[in-house]
Design a binder for these strands. Structure first.
Lengths: 196, 196
DNA sequence: GTCTATAAGAAGATAGAC
DNA sequence: GTCTATCTTCTTATAGAC
């Protein structure tokens, strides 16, 4: 066991593979990333990676599980740091601005992966959709805390998620940070205007 | 020359390849569609396809050019059929509803292709972006005809395009026609509320 | 747990007969 | 303009030594 990370050697290797693949899948796409790309980028050897993951498919599943955990941790930190539900929702919108550079270059990590997998990888698309589910459910709770009933809260949550996806797609298509910034502003105003 | 289509034998073969590839690229994605897939789906022979297009890349360029022509024809027909600019804009929004089934299953043809090409096919992404350009410029003209100045008209055009993309991404992620329908309704109301 | 080597197939691209 | 055959490279997956 490493005293610094609390992870065993094997756990560290496994995590290193996941993080490497996560970055490549985001920047190049899943299909466009070969097993050899992961080998090279990780600095590990082929057989060592297959020791942890037999197939590329398994790596993707681990990457999705890893992303889900990251999102859970993020939402929990927002719950801890921000008392007001409206401010929490705006924190979600702010995330789009904070990630702006990456979004402009590669699109939304959730949206672009889901869109890619939606084309003839139906099972994996459903797994990746769980990332949206986490945000949808969390946003729904925040809207409920604003005094809205659950059906409307869910509708607004999905609307907000969709707005974020639209911003990401267009900002990426035009590689335009100014568009992203302006649309985030509009979206924050929309959040301010939501009334019970 | 064929009297029925006005196309020569070669032109018909070329068009057949383009239409076959267009469908496959949409349903499976560009990367996920192999040259052999196009051979099989077209019913033509490998060498005959390479006679018209030497590489898969060239087929994609022809597919994009073909889509651009279709969009130009569509916008021209709207210009001819619909006198009021606001109704023209709503016709654009209505298109999302009309294409709803395909969008739910495969996403937006423009958005999903652009997102895929944005990952390490930068030149081709810029070609595919021209599809957005056509709608952006047309929508900009419609907003200008509503009495808006060009900068704001362009901002609203891009906003509207982004809303459409967001709806498509989420409707596809959740395979949810009801979400799409409801969001299209909201978007039509937004169009109604645009004032000079 | 780490590494090397390779099998088996699919991919894109090309040559050349008809 | 149409078709068959093949070349080369890349890709996934696996076997097995250390």
């Amino acid at each position: 066991m490493s005293e610094h990370t609390g992870l065993s050697k094997g756990e560290r290797s496994r995590l290193h593979i996941i993080e490497t693949a996560n970055r490549l899948f985001y920047e190049r796409g899943y299909q466009q990333t070969s097993f050899s790309d992961i080998v090279e980028a990780s600095g590990m050897h082929r057989g060592n990676i297959t020791y942890y993951f037999r197939t590329k498919n398994e790596i993707l599943q681990a990457v999705i599980a890893h992303r889900l955990e990251s999102i859970r941790a993020l939402l929990a930190s927002w719950d801890g740091d921000i008392p007001e539900p409206r401010e929490r929702i705006k924190r979600f919108v702010q995330m789009i601005l904070i990630s702006g550079e990456e979004i402009v270059e590669y699109g939304c990590p959730m949206g672009s992966l889901n869109t890619e997998l939606g084309k003839s990888e139906a099972e994996l698309q459903q797994e990746s959709r769980q990332m949206f589910d986490l945000f949808r459910d969390w946003l729904t709770r925040q809207f409920q805390d604003l005094g809205l009933r659950k059906p409307r809260a869910t509708r607004l949550a999905l609307h907000l998620l969709g707005r974020g996806q639209g911003i990401s797609v267009m900002a990426h298509a035009y590689h335009d940070p100014a568009y992203l910034k302006n649309e985030v502003l509009l979206l924050k105003r929309w959040v301010d205007d939501v009334k019970a």
